[in-house]
């Protein structure tokens, strides 16, 4: 009886396991192995990883000025983009909670999520153009000399990170909106009877009850930021002078411009490790909950 039950279960699970192994695990293991060999085919992990990590395009500590290297650029992206999108999405979700026609506004904000990132990058390159872009026009209206921030090494990475907030805020907004609808109205009514102010209700009811979904939003956003490619590729190509280079772009550069798949595999493995560092705690927490 039990063996038949297990056989049925296995029959359902097996196709998924085969697919996961073929599409996820096997390529990941092969990439990891490839990263341990030099381009000449010699097993020398130290040399291969050392060559990549000492490349100025990956890490650059020559001066305090950009470019800092792809790893630091990804971290800058996370520091700027993560809190901005998560908090903005949360605030908008709370703000629109009781607004009539909120679905229309939320859908408009969500458009950023459905736009391909390469198109988003192209839109940004025009957005920042000093003569035809909305940012340039706004700067001129305020009497500020218009300058395209994407063209200057000291502003380019920040312009990209801030400029891409609209592309991802919809994700935070939609998830937080959905989670907000699950909080019983009674909690707020009771708190109001007890004399709680709106900010206190926000910090002591809304935030704690949204914590689990906020964690998901944070993890997914960090993963998105780590694998950012299309926006940078289309808006700046990693320039000027590598000032906007990021890990995924560097991986592309190694693998498909230099045909150096071993170096590309090292960058992929670095990305994998960074993603695991972020996602494992969330998965463990989800299991324990």
């Amino acid at each position: 009886m039990y063996s038949r039950k297990y056989a049925t279960a296995a029959a359902f699970i097996l196709p998924a396991l085969i697919l996961i192994f073929a599409i996820d695990l096997y390529p990941a293991i092969r990439t990891l192995i490839l990263s341990l060999y030099t381009p000449e085919g010699v097993f020398d992990p130290v040399a291969n990883w050392g060559a990549v990590l000492s490349d100025r395009k990956m890490l650059n500590f020559r001066s305090w000025e950009p470019p800092y290297g792809a790893i630091i650029h990804n971290l800058i992206w996370i520091v700027i983009h993560l809190p901005t999108t998560v908090i903005l999405g949360l605030l908008l979700a709370v703000l629109f909670r009781r607004v009539k026609g909120k679905a229309v506004v939320q859908s408009i904000i969500f458009i950023g999520m459905v736009i391909p990132m390469v198109v988003g990058g192209l839109i940004m390159s025009f957005m920042f153009d000093r003569s035809i872009g909305v940012v340039g026009i706004a700067a001129r209206l305020f009497g500020t000399p218009a300058q395209n921030p994407l063209r200057y090494p000291d502003t380019a990475i920040y312009a990209l990170a801030f400029g891409s907030v609209w592309l991802w805020t919809g994700f935070s907004l939609i998830l937080h909106s959905a989670a907000l609808s699950t909080i019983p109205q009674d909690y707020y009514d009771q708190a109001r009877v007890d004399g709680a102010s709106a900010p206190r209700m926000f910090f002591q009811i809304t935030i704690p009850l949204l914590a689990s979904i906020t964690r998901v939003v944070i993890v997914m956003t960090v993963i998105w930021e780590l694998k950012i490619f299309g926006i940078v590729f289309a808006a700046t190509g990693g320039g000027p002078g590598n000032a906007t280079n990021v890990l995924a772009l560097q991986m592309y550069d190694y693998a498909f411009r230099q045909f150096n798949f071993n170096y590309g595999a090292v960058v992929t493995t670095i990305l994998l490790i960074m993603v695991l560092i972020v996602s494992i705690p969330m998965v463990r927490r989800s299991i324990s909950e």
Partner: peptide
């Protein structure tokens, strides 16, 4: 020449134009 040189050349000239 292509390869790594090409992307470096492009990026560095973008930098030269503003610096």
């Amino acid at each position: 020449i292509g390869g790594e040189f090409q992307s470096t050349f492009w990026g560095e000239l973008q930098l030269l134009w503003v610096r």
